[in-house]
Design a protein around this nucleic acid. Structure first.
Length: 127
DNA sequence: ACGCTGACTATTA
DNA sequence: CTAATAGCCAGCG
């Protein structure tokens, strides 16, 4: 698949100027920002928290713009259901995700969160 | 407006 | 454990 390219300011409308924001993306970002340091969660968990548990993919897609939005979204704390750092290639560099996690006390081996279940943070409990 | 893509998940083999 | 398949839905060409 030589797809590639999804650069630039895609997801044009994440933050329309002065507009009321409660799009799907905004809700994802809001939840993601609440992830405490040293904890991780899954796309599906976030999706479920905002009432779209079947749309885990949209959560991941939303994170695609997480780098450019206002307060920094800890996208590195969001991994897939297996605890794998599936989105690491979307960071400035692939190793950054693991670095950030380990820096916060989350051990990562072979691109997977160690003791993922123990570090898991359920967004539903916070909301 | 239609079709393809995708940072997912669950199920089946 | 891996591989393949289906369901899912917002954004973009």
């Amino acid at each position: 698949m030589a797809k590639a390219k999804l650069p630039k300011e895609k997801i044009s409308n994440i933050k329309p100027s002065g507009n009321k924001d409660h799009s799907f993306f905004e809700m994802v970002f809001e939840v993601a920002r609440q992830i405490p340091k040293g904890s991780v969660t899954s796309y599906g968990a976030i999706a479920a928290a905002i009432g779209a548990k079947s749309s885990a993919r949209m959560v991941g897609w939303a994170m695609n713009g997480a780098h450019k939005i206002k307060p920094r979204v800890p996208a590195h704390r969001v991994v897939n259901r297996q605890g794998l750092l599936t989105g690491k290639f979307h960071f400035e560099y692939p190793e950054q995700m693991q670095e950030l996690l380990e820096k916060e006390g989350v051990r990562v081996v072979n691109d997977k969160v160690v003791d993922f279940k123990n570090h898991f943070w359920d967004p539903m409990e916070h909301v």
